[in-house]
């Protein structure tokens, strides 16, 4: 599904964000990428959805080598990878329904299909009854659910969540993680980037630990190892 082969990412003049990263994520896996701030975990996520380009090495998603992806192909890649951020990135002037349908609108989907899909994903994230509300009328956890719903509308095979619980309290964070697990159970590969020890330990899923741009451990049903 996802394969990083000897991937490095350097920023001028001499910052090394990732160094010789080798990683293989199988279809349907739930993988937590953990590490301290500045360890390179977010850079790894950005490489996955082509927000950044690798300086060296090869990244393959499915059968697609995205290491040298053409700019015009990036939108195609991003429709296959759902992305969730810590700060939700919702449009404040649009309702929940409009925020989710926006992703389909800009991809040129027909109205009928939008009317079919959006209620389905809102049901998955538990916001069917709040589709007409604006982001400011929702709690942080609900806003993150909208963000997850938007990431799901293209029915991606991979969901990358970069610190999705970073702005949430413990209860809401737990709800979001449960939702991600549910999505994973439906067959979507989930890559969770986090530095939340409790969440990682509670998940009991594969944990890849990054420190100073290098993978220092990769354990099935692992735990948060960094002190």
């Amino acid at each position: 599904m996802i394969r990083f082969s000897n991937v490095s990412k350097h920023y001028p003049p001499n910052t090394c964000a990732l160094e010789h990263v080798n990683l293989h994520i199988k279809p349907g896996e739930f993988v937590s990428i953990v590490g301290q701030s500045g360890s390179g975990k977010t850079t790894l996520a950005k490489l996955l959805f082509a927000e950044e380009r690798a300086t060296k090495g090869k990244i393959v998603v499915g059968d697609w080598d995205i290491s040298s992806i053409h700019t015009s192909d990036i939108p195609v890649l991003r429709r296959q990878i759902g992305i969730v951020f810590q700060d939700f990135k919702l449009l404040s002037r649009k309702t929940v329904f409009e925020n989710v349908s926006f992703a389909l609108e800009v991809a040129g989907e027909e109205r009928k299909r939008i009317r079919d899909i959006v209620p389905q994903v809102l049901k998955i994230v538990g916001l069917s009854d709040k589709h007409h509300r604006y982001p400011r009328q929702l709690s942080g956890g609900e806003q993150q659910r909208v963000s997850i719903a938007r990431a799901l509308v293209h029915r991606p095979k991979i969901l990358v969540a970069d610190e999705p619980t970073g702005n949430l309290d413990t209860i809401h964070a737990h709800e979001i993680i449960q939702l991600l697990k549910k999505i994973n159970e439906y067959g979507t590969t989930v890559v969770l980037v986090t530095h939340d020890r409790d969440i990682v330990n509670a998940l009991k899923k594969r944990v890849v630990t990054i420190a100073d741009g290098r993978i220092v451990s990769d354990i099935e049903r692992g735990k948060y190892l960094i002190s």
């Binding site: 990135k89 449009l91 800009v106 991809a107």
Partner: peptide, 15 residues
């Protein structure tokens, strides 16, 4: 913000 989200959700460049 809209542009950032458009890019995030895979809007075409021309869009």
């Amino acid at each position: 913000d809209e542009i950032a989200i458009m890019k995030l959700v895979g809007a075409n460049d021309w869009f």
